[in-house]
Design a protein around this nucleic acid. Structure first.
Lengths: 224, 224
DNA sequence: CTCAGGGCTAAGCGTGCGCTTAGCCTGCGA
DNA sequence: TCGCAGGCTAAGCGCACGCTTAGCCCTGAG
């Protein structure tokens, strides 16, 4: 339901067809996330993939093409995570979506950093392609909030503003998350789902406000 | 009260002593924010400040020193904005602080981008110096939330988690804000103050949930 | 066995980077 | 009037970058 994320540690890269090309993409994603696109050299990427510097150009047209592939696949994966959320009512769907989206940004924080912070290094053509996916992400969140408002579950005066805030909350996870930190991606998902429901003026279920840490007011199937 | 921000368009740079050094700092902040540290050349900065490439090294030891000055001054300014918030009770103080902090990240989005997204380009020594200020920012927000919880104004199960979310919301403004956008920095401040109070389980004043867009439940002195 | 073709490497090209050097110009105290 | 300190520039050094070229090696069809 949530894309081919759970089978291998590499996640969405698994169907990049020549194994060398996949290793190079993974190496590039890690390097771009860790040091930034401009601080990463093609020699770094090749070395991380145990290949010669020239091998990059067999599978990719340029260093920027490598960035574009990481960004494109990452955007598609995060959009898929967001749209795959289900639930019996608008509040449950929103909680499920936020939980999955926020925890994706933690779990895949390397890819997510490239997705969120390296847009400026794309060519205008590649940027335009990725912006289509970004607009779809924004529209999805706005639609979910509007659904909740129309169903009487949410009470927000400014739907686009609230959508901006929900995305901010989730996206920013990629900036501060460290794998060695105290919170697991699942914890982060649950915490954010709870905070978002409060933010949207969702009438709290029993125990929502004072419940145990890391547990949202409504049960989330994908949390344990 | 809110630092020397309101007098000149340059804000916090105004007391950098040789005018040429100040022009260079401003140029560097703009360039680092727009293209990123590693994509910016010392020639870019010098040209923007209408000087020769060599002039950079009269006032600064290196390109990284320029980054450090922007980061240090920016961190100090944002911490000052946060700690200058006042109010008759914890909720009003929090609303005032969030409003000021979020709108600072919009108003000074160029500096804020350097502050938030270029930490990795600092030397370990310079990073350590700036991390001291960052920790103070986090501690300030945690303290404000704890104060509200102890006063019975806020209802949050996880104070550090909530602080993380409040900072996320404000900091992420620097990522998406565009001066040409529909929302003014003041709008953004008011919107975020409102959302944060809801997130913290603040007992809403009359009209908080359904009030007109951009107006928080409690009056904020610096909003108009 | 032959040999074509693709994955891959060693070597290197041209460029633009951060930073340095040598020296010019201006303002000012004596 | 002189000397000189310091802000500033023209020129350029050495290096590491993105990317290309020429050719090697391995596999597999005929």
């Amino acid at each position: 339901m949530t894309a081919p994320e759970s089978g291998s540690p590499d996640g969405a890269w698994r169907d990049i067809t020549p194994p060398a090309a996949r290793r190079m993409l993974v190496a590039a994603a890690a390097a771009f996330a860790g040091r930034g696109y401009h601080a990463t050299t093609t020699r770094d990427i090749a070395a991380q993939a145990s290949m010669s510097p020239a091998a990059v150009y067999i599978h990719y047209r340029s260093k920027e093409d490598l960035l574009f592939q990481v960004s494109r696949i990452g955007h598609a994966a995060s959009l898929d995570v967001l749209t795959s959320a289900t639930g019996p009512d608008p509040a449950a769907r929103m909680a499920s979506a936020v939980s999955a989206f926020a925890s994706w940004h933690a779990e895949h924080h390397t890819t997510a950093r490239v997705v969120q912070y390296e847009l400026g290094a794309l060519t205008p053509e590649h940027l335009a392609e990725v912006v289509v996916l970004r607009k779809r992400i924004g529209a999805t969140v706005r639609r979910m909030i509007r659904d909740g408002v129309e169903a009487g579950a949410f009470h927000v005066p400014d739907v686009p503003g609230a959508a901006l805030a929900v995305l901010s909350l989730c996206v920013d996870v990629a900036r501060w998350y460290r794998p060695a930190g105290r919170r697991s991606p699942a914890d982060i998902g649950a915490l954010h789902a709870d905070l978002v429901l409060r933010m949207l003026g969702c009438d709290p279920g029993p125990g929502n406000a004072e419940g145990p840490p890391g547990v949202a007011g409504r049960p989330l199937r994908e949390q344990v």
